[in-house]
Design a protein around this nucleic acid. Structure first.
Length: 930
RNA sequence: GGGCGUUUGGCGCAGUGGGAGCGCGCUUCCUUCACACGGAAGAGGUCGCUGGUUCAAAUCCAGUAACGCCCACCA
């Protein structure tokens, strides 16, 4: 590879690489034979996106995180599978197809149920793969060979089994309740499918005349936010203890309901708060859940005044045919005309909206199917309490508990056509009814024709089975072994708004149907992706960003890394596309580091590098203890990570290898806690600030040195790059693969996708505190020289002389380390070292720069600006004096010396001593300059 | 009404008991043979506020303010 362009071009490499990976079968369970079948399988089920959907930023983030986990597990050789598929999304899909029909002037009723469902399937065939293709575009390594769908054949069987079992266990029942009705979707919704939004409205105080005045009282005033529902009022309720109404109650007062001319009672009910409004509540049993309960207690009739589309029906007298908004205006106008509006207050309250179409929900009395939740919830609470299922971050378990402990029965019937039809069959002849696993046409009792329930099930009723229905459950026995080996899955990653809708229900159904096993060990609740101002991204705000646009502009790797890097445990993610520029720069940096290495590999082959002839250390003065010995022993590092063996010959080599070992350990540790942001930052700073900024610079000297030095530098550059690419691969799969395939690492794996994850244990032999110390010393000296040059505008071409006085605790070691780095000092800072010892003296005409454990004297004969230098020294001295005073005060404090940890005290003492010496030195120099 | 989260340099964020870090932006210098999507050197913060615990608080506790999110049937 000789002609690498300066900039990384993702568009050119991503699609072909992905196609190659797919063709090779790397994403399938046994990863084309590379997985170690002895290891525990690693499975994630994707939260199935809606077939109607296209990728949004939340998906982009969520699927990035899952792919990071999956790719890493795959490189660790666990049998890995990321199960992918789509959700039939009852309401959403039905809405799409209905609006398509509407364009032809048709409704679903015009075409009929069968043809409509057929149209839904066609729609899915046409558009259902959009989001799957987008996942591929992001580089997601799902097992695309067996895509699942929540209406697959076996899935239908799963649904029926669950329904029938629960029905026969008495957990599913039908009942007349006030449910949430969406008049646009014309279906019932579950409580958690309703979004409550605060709406600025009014509280209307309406006079309800008594049939017979009680004393002076001729009417009651009721307060309401929904005056139009008065058409369905069947009582007025007051609190039985309310002194204002005791006389009325005693007299058995009755109301003549305005506009409807209906006589309704005044009832006493504890539900009524005396402090709100007038303490008198109009009771509309068919359109309010509380009123429904009051009506049950007082045996009041229910009058439904709405059609399914929320128009006033025939029970609404003169207002029949009006929609609910017009009805409100008309009712108010009429009441006003009759002088029955007492007064009006501004009032803001929460109003339910459909989570699919945003229409205002109508509480509606209706017969629906429910799941009794209490018995299912109890064990599901337990498994989270005893950590069989862990929430990450943990605080989300509180949200889960809160909901589960107050759980209400789940309305599962939907008045839709697209979905799993409720498998309950009725006989009109004899009244027989049952839930059946297989369709049946005739009554087993009287042989009359049966008919099936018209409703379909809530989409979440099928989604809850996703972790095991995707394994073919209950299609035993062929899937039983698969399920036994691979269940539970490892991780479920999702957004927080889905904890109730989905996560909780998967846990409950899994516990019930899979012998008490949980569906996954860890739940990751990832941050919400907000726009750059911190607003939720939404269609109505128009502030959404299409992830595929980002992939087009920056490449999938940059988007993935950028998203992962911004994940924290506590904050939502304010996403600014401009910020991706940072990560594009990082990708370019990686690209160019690789480019540099490729340009310097003349004469290098991986095969040549595998001869374990370790070169004699270049600097023999460095009889460096442990690390060198360990590395010289060729058995210390196995050859199955990469066949290129590094050589820790110089301090720089030892340093970068030590840092690499530390990074690997750190990533492994953070990964267990799902800390994606800190992993990304660790990778970023290792690669850029350590590998590129320093190691590659060090290596340039070695590359220009003897053939032995050059060969050693080459193999170390290849080794570290190879390892870094492995560590980066889960986050940036394309870029890393494109480089890795060209790199002569000697590894025979055909792709980084199935190569080995760096082995923390094997790398641990490179941990080397001394080498890390050496880089601190070197960097301190180089920085001192560079900043001095900058201050006095001294050209980098002007060679400088320095003397270094060592002031640390182990000056012998420091001297040795710095001596060994002399060559690096010369080339990176263009200087020569005059003296290096604990007794070094300050040369004539030099400036002093202090660093940790070093006093650096830089000879600047004829170059010093005395005024500037004096100012700088004074400032430096002052800062140190402030620190010294603080330490003196601290050490003089008996509380500190008696209570603080001994090491903390001795550190403070050391620091003070050091500071005092430094201050003396600085003052001497200041005196000299003055 | 209840719960959760956030508040650290201009902006976006790390940092959980021993004297604050990163990226962007900003200032100055450098187009020298990986990278100007670059390199080098700098400036910039009394860690929302008040009180407490502690020898020691950005970090623990209490209170308070602002912002955000979730749950909740006062019409």
């Amino acid at each position: 590879m000789t002609e690498m362009p300066k900039n990384y071009d993702p568009a050119a490499i991503e699609a072909p690489l992905f196609a190659k990976w797919l063709k090779a079968g790397y994403f399938e369970r046994d990863a084309a034979g590379f997985a170690d079948l002895q290891l525990e399988p690693y499975t994630i089920v994707i939260p199935p996106p809606n077939v109607t959907g296209s990728l949004h930023m939340g998906h982009a983030l969520n699927n990035t995180l899952q792919d990071i986990l999956i790719r890493r597990a795959r490189m660790q050789k666990r049998p890995t599978r990321w199960i992918v598929g789509t959700d039939h999304a009852g309401i959403a899909t039905q809405n799409r197809v209905e609006s398509k029909l509407a364009k032809e002037g048709l409704t679903r009723f015009d075409v009929g149920r069968e043809a409509f469902v057929e149209a839904c399937w066609e729609w899915r065939e046409l558009y259902g793969s959009t989001i799957i293709e987008q996942l591929k575009g992001m580089g997601c390594s799902c097992d695309f060979t067996s895509e699942k769908f929540t209406m697959d054949k076996n899935y239908v069987q799963a649904i029926r089994k669950v329904f029938v079992d629960w029905y026969h266990a008495g957990l599913i029942y039908k009942g007349l309740r006030i449910i949430n009705w969406c008049p646009r979707c014309t279906t019932a919704l579950a409580d958690d499918e309703v979004h409550h939004l605060d709406v600025e409205s009014h509280l209307w105080y309406v006079k309800y005349p008594l049939v017979q005045p009680v004393g002076e009282t001729e009417y009651l005033v009721v307060a309401t936010t929904r005056p139009e529902t008065m058409l369905g009022d069947t009582a007025v309720a007051v609190n039985p203890t309310d002194p204002r109404y005791l006389a009325l109650l005693a007299a058995g007062a009755q109301i003549r309901l305005p506009l409807m001319d209906r006589v309704i009672p005044v009832v006493a009910d504890d539900y009524v708060e005396t402090s709100f409004g007038t303490g008198a509540v109009k009771v509309t049993p068919a359109h309010d859940p509380n009123d429904f309960e009051i009506a049950k207690r007082h045996d009041l009739p229910q009058i439904n005044i709405f059609t399914p589309e929320a128009y006033i029906n025939e029970n609404g007298g003169q207002f029949v045919g009006l929609n609910r908004d017009d009805a409100r205006l008309a009712v108010l106008a009429e009441l006003e005309a009759l002088g029955l509006i007492d007064h009006i207050e501004e009032y803001s309250h929460a109003v339910g909206h459909c989570y699919r179409c945003d229409t205002v929900i109508e509480p509606w009395a209706s017969e629906q199917w429910f799941v009794a939740m209490a018995d299912l919830a109890a064990p599901a609470i337990e498994v989270v309490r005893d950590k069989q299922v862990r929430f990450n971050p943990q605080r989300w378990e509180k949200v889960y508990f809160q909901w589960m402990e107050n759980i209400r029965d789940w309305c599962i019937s939907r008045q839709l056509w697209w979905g799993h039809r409720i498998p309950v069959f009725y006989c009109d002849q004899c009244g027989w009814q049952d839930a059946l696993l297989e369709d049946q046409s005739h009554c087993p009792v009287c042989s009359a024709e049966l008919h099936q329930d018209e409703d379909v099930l809530d989409t979440w009723f099928s989604s809850q089975l996703w972790p095991f229905a995707t394994y073919g459950w209950p299609g035993e026995p062929e899937h039983a072994a698969d399920l036994a080996r691979n269940y539970p899955t490892q991780v479920l990653s999702t957004a927080r708004d889905i904890i109730f809708l989905w996560v909780a229900r998967m846990i409950m159904s899994s516990l019930y149907f899979l012998d008490g096993s949980v569906p996954f060990a860890d739940v990751i609740i990832h941050p919400t992706v907000l726009d750059r101002f911190g607003n939720i991204m939404s269609k109505s705000r128009g502030n959404g960003i299409d992830p595929m646009d980002l992939v087009g502009e920056f490449g999938a790797d940059v988007m993935r890394f950028g998203l992962a890097a911004q994940v924290t445990g506590t904050q939502d993610l304010k996403f600014d596309r401009e910020k991706l520029g940072v990560y594009r720069n990082f990708a370019t940096k990686i690209h160019n580091a690789a480019r540099f290495i490729f340009m310097n590999l003349d004469g290098f082959t991986a095969a040549g590098s595998t001869t374990n002839t370790v070169q004699t250390p270049v600097d023999k003065t460095l009889a460096l203890e442990a690390a060198s010995a360990a590395v010289a022993d060729s058995t210390a590092v196995q050859t199955d990570i990469s066949t290129v063996q590094p050589e820790a010959l110089t301090l720089a080599d030892r340093w970068i290898l030590s840092r690499l070992a530390r990074l690997t350990a750190q990533l492994n540790e953070q990964s267990t806690r799902f800390e994606f942001g800190s992993q990304a930052r660790a990778l970023y700073s290792f690669f850029w600030n350590e590998f590129c900024d320093w190691y590659i610079e060090f290596a340039k000297n070695q590359l220009a040195g003897s053939p032995a030095e050059r060969a050693s530098a080459q193999r170390n550059l290849v080794f570290v790059l190879d390892q870094a690419l492995r560590l980066l691969h889960p986050m940036m799969p394309f870029l890393t693969e494109s480089i890795w395939l060209e790199l002569p690492h000697g590894d025979t794996h055909p792709s980084l996708v199935v190569a080995d994850w760096p082995d923390q244990q094997q790398l641990a032999v490179y941990l080397d505190d001394q080498a890390e110390r050496s880089s601190d010393l070197l960097i301190a000296v180089i920085s001192a020289l560079r900043s001095t040059r900058a201050r006095y505008r001294i050209s980098p071409k002007t060679a400088l002389s320095v003397s270094i006085r060592l002031t640390g605790n182990d000056t012998a070691t420091d001297a040795r380390l710095l001596t060994a780095l002399g060559e690096q000092l010369t080339s990176l800072a263009n200087c020569q070292v005059l003296e290096l010892s604990k007794d070094a003296s300050q040369p004539e005409q030099s400036v002093i720069v202090l660093a940790d454990d070093l006093e650096i004297y830089i000879v600047l004969a004829g170059l010093i600006d005395f005024a500037a230098e004096l100012a700088r020294l004074s400032k430096d001295c002052q800062a140190r004096q402030t620190d010294a005073e603080r330490l003196q005060k601290k050490l003089a404090n008996p509380g500190f010396t008696s209570k603080a940890a001994p090491e903390v005290i001795s550190k403070a003492q050391d620091d003070l001593e050091k500071l005092t010496a430094e201050i003396n030195g600085l003052q001497a120099q200041i005196a000299e300059l003055q």
